[in-house]
């Protein structure tokens, strides 16, 4: 049985209220508010600096510019929201809206970021065009520098060689990041030929056939991954001699891509296994002690 009812009385309307709503601290829309404030005062916007200059921006990397762009964009979103409220409440034309002034400053930074990026883009396009036009000249020029440099300049030449192979053949210094293609095969052979000419001229064991040329991608890869020292290249030559003594036919051009993919896979696996053994070797003493 239900208890007796109370008297029914009419009440005034109950308007909805926002006071019951609890907003999460990490709500995404907080990004439109500075410090969770409804609006900033004009005093809080006084200490705004000047926009970034072009020379300052030229020193920044792409990642830094990218970050700066989004920081600016978010700040402009905040300012324009505040500006809209400011104009609504004042209900008149405001020539010096502080929010708009700061927003314009940020806008200047933003077009300068774009300007710097476009400069880089044009420089890149021009560079590519120049490489295409003077391809053989650039290779010959580098070859001459590389082969005539003395032993003292080995390290410098190694760095230059890395840049050369990246610029002309697209060979990433991190070998495992490359995707095998014809250009990379061409680059590997070219680099191997240069290394062999620079370091391979030293004495080799008597009674063995001198290694003057690269027969296939396998040999090119051995020389390419060899250390940039006479000893490194000598070891590579020995490996090639052993390889040739086995009497296998050189890899044909049609099979080169598959062969390179296998070589790169093995190279990576070896690197991983070497890395794991070295970490084990490091870990061992600590466990024994």
């Amino acid at each position: 049985m239900n208890p007796p009812q109370k008297e029914l009385k009419l009440r005034p309307p109950i308007p909805p209220s926002v006071s019951n709503i609890k907003t999460k601290d990490d709500h995404p829309l907080w990004q439109f508010f500075h410090d969770k404030k409804y609006m900033r005062t004009a005093d809080e916007l006084k200490d705004v600096g000047e926009p970034w200059s072009v020379p300052q921006l030229r020193r920044k990397s792409f990642e830094e510019l990218h970050t700066l762009w989004y920081v600016c964009l978010k700040e402009r979103n905040r300012l324009l929201r505040e500006s809209r409220i400011y104009q609504t409440w004042n209900d008149q034309d405001l020539p010096d809206d502080p929010f708009v002034t700061v927003s314009e400053t940020i806008k200047t930074t933003m077009w300068r970021v774009r300007h710097v990026l476009s400069e880089r883009s044009h420089a890149w396009a021009n560079g590519i065009k120049e490489v295409e036009n003077n391809y053989t000249e650039i290779i010959n020029e580098f070859e001459e520098d590389y082969l005539t440099a003395d032993a003292a300049a080995d390290r410098e030449m190694e760095a230059r060689l890395e840049r050369f192979q990246f610029a002309l053949f697209g060979i990433n210094p991190m070998l495992e990041d490359n995707v095998p293609d014809r250009n990379i095969i061409k680059g590997l052979k070219e680099v191997a030929r240069l290394k062999l000419t620079r370091f391979g001229a030293s004495e080799y064991e008597q009674g063995t056939e001198p290694i003057n040329n690269i027969r296939d991608i396998n040999e090119a890869f051995i020389v390419f991954t060899a250390e940039h020292t006479p000893e490194g290249v000598e070891d590579a030559i020995k490996t090639i001699q052993e390889y040739r003594e086995q009497g296998t036919d050189p890899i044909s051009e049609s099979d080169e891509l598959t062969a390179l993919a296998k070589l790169m896979f093995n190279f990576e696996q070896e690197k991983i296994s070497v890395g794991s053994t070295s970490t084990k070797a490091e870990a061992e003493p600590t466990t024994t002690v």
Binding site: K6, K9, L10, P13, P16, S19, N20, I21
Partner: peptide
């Protein structure tokens, strides 16, 4: 808003434990 007030009146008059599931926090009022 009047319907919300009516719900309040009816709940009070019923003199029984009851539950109201609102569509959101906003509607219930202060």
């Amino acid at each position: 808003q009047e319907a919300v007030a009516d719900l309040a009146s009816a709940v009070e008059a019923s003199n029984l434990e009851c539950e109201i599931k609102w569509e959101n926090e906003w509607r219930r009022g202060e």
